[in-house]
Amino acid sequence: MLSQLRSLWEVLKHTFVKADTIEYPEQRRELFPRYRGRIILTRDPDGEERCVACNLCAVVCPPDCIALQKTEDENGRWYPEFFRINFSRCILCGLCEEACPTHAIQLTPDFDMGEYDRQNMVYEKQHLLIDGTGKYHDYNFYRIAGMAIGGKTKGQAENEKPPVDVKTLLP
């Protein structure tokens, strides 16, 4: 009983405590780089598209709001032919970023994405792709993956031996 009265009193005391509310949009607070806001597609340190169209972000997305299609350039490098996020469905959970093996898809601290027309919430690749590396500066998936792409043949990835010569009998 006493504790109930005490609660009442403690709560009442807050009448004289200043509110913590930050009055967005007049006031804005500094957000951490890992804040989960608007999603971007980044480029690798060489300026190429990072996304390899593996579809992992799409499959992990709880509201299924990512759709893309894989295609290849003439040298066998995978990239998305189209990449679409329906932000009117996105719950900004960040699972896509966690699933992405290439650091291509990243969430940013920009969250004011309100639109009067819902159709404008549909972002295509040209709206998503930025010119930089985003939060992760050095990673380049294709430098590690053992796949030949333009400018890199077999054996030139990190930690690779040159291709085997099958015709040799030497051990």
Partner: peptide
């Protein structure tokens, strides 16, 4: 995957 985005365009 992609149910809510495939026709969104």
């Amino acid at each position: 995957s992609g149910r809510t985005a495939m026709h969104a365009n």
